[in-house]
Simulated scan of single mutants.
Amino acid sequence: MSDGREGRLRPGEGSGVDGKRVLVTGGSRGLGEQIVRLLAAGGARLATCARTPEDLRSLTASLSAQGHGEPFTRALDVTEPELLEEFVDAAAERFSGLDGVVACAGGARGRGIEEAGARDWSLTWEMNVGHTARLVKAAVPHLRGAGGGSVVVIASISGWKPGPQAQYGAAKAAQIHLAAALARELGPDGIRVNAVSPGSMLIPGKRWDRMRTEEPEAYARFMAELPRGELVTPWEVAQVVAFLLSDASSGVSGAHLPVDRAQNAPTPGGY
């Protein structure tokens, strides 16, 4: 997915990440893809993982065709033991260290409280909180070896604005807390940790885009949750992530930054 704006940047221009060695989880689709594209356009050296090899190959071919080089990629499920940690070590070896990591992979399983089982809750937790904790743990020695670095945790406004499903919101709330706690723990090593919470994003082919075309009346009611009546875009969220990875944000750590156009409820059902 791309809205075409990344083409406005040339390597080393605009984003402040030129030469940064950055690993992004879940970087082949949606927000993760837009983060990868923006960082690549800014001259970063990139590693990214996703579950689908075909998506990674498509992303690599596209970035290469745009003159942004080829990222180091690996197909894996971030919830499978040791695979993520091995990828982090391999990326650090390839780049001779790391300057930043972005925990973007995530998701949810199950529906409402009466329908979701224990496995739905545990999988949702592992996709979001567990994967983030293991990513940071694996990256810390490499960030420390580079003299410090930046960790960006992609949470969600669902982490503090109630809405279904509860297991997803609870996991996102934990990510926000995790970022603040790790900022204190890792600060002495020069490692900054921040959380970014996107609002509902308009992504071609995804839930809100489908609602816009298939259920225009429901979509119009949903827009009442946003003062501007317009959803945030992945590009706008990616720019905040790039800022937090750059040296321009050297004084920012332990912060929680919503990027949601002052959205109220995270779902059409309201609070």
Rank of each mutant, 00 (worst) to 15 (best):
L39V: 01
F243A: 05
G16N: 04
G269M: 03
T233R: 15
W160K: 11
L226N: 00
Y219H: 04
G112D: 14
P81V: 02
G19A: 02
R184K: 11
E93R: 15
G205A: 12
G159W: 07
E214M: 13
S200F: 08
G16H: 02
V237L: 13
S58W: 12
A103M: 05
L39N: 00
L231I: 01
G14E: 09
A65Q: 06
K206I: 02
V78P: 02
G67C: 04
P11D: 13
T60L: 07
S28I: 07
A179M: 10
S2E: 12
R45S: 14
T132A: 15
G199C: 04
R29P: 05
L231E: 05
G229H: 01
L257M: 07
K20H: 00
E6V: 13
G169L: 04
E114L: 12
F243H: 06
G187I: 03
L63Y: 08
N128G: 08
A116R: 03
F222E: 03
E80D: 15
W235K: 06
R261V: 00
G159Q: 10
A173V: 05
R5W: 06
V240F: 07
V241D: 15
G67D: 09
N128V: 03
L63I: 08
S197I: 02
A224E: 14
T60E: 12
P258I: 06
F95D: 01
V196K: 07
S64F: 10
P266Y: 15
L178Y: 15
K20F: 00
G163N: 05
Y168G: 08
I176P: 12
L9G: 11
P266D: 10
E82F: 08
T60A: 14
A44Q: 01
F87H: 10
P188W: 05
A224F: 11
G27E: 08
G67M: 04
E93S: 15
R109G: 06
V88W: 14
H68E: 13
A218L: 12
L178D: 02
W208S: 09
S156P: 02
M127I: 13
S15A: 14
T60M: 05
V140K: 13
G254T: 05
A133P: 01
A118R: 10
S64I: 09
D18P: 02
R192G: 03
G251E: 07
D18A: 15
R221C: 03
A242S: 14
A248Y: 10
Y219G: 01
L39I: 00
C49F: 03
A183W: 08
V193D: 03
P216V: 04
V17T: 00
L143C: 14
T60S: 14
N264Q: 12
R8C: 10
W160F: 12
L123V: 12
G4Q: 05
R119W: 03
Y271V: 08
G117H: 10
A242R: 02
A138Q: 08
G110V: 12
V129W: 04
P258K: 01
G159Y: 07
R261N: 02
A91T: 04
P204R: 11
V151P: 01
D189I: 01
A47M: 06
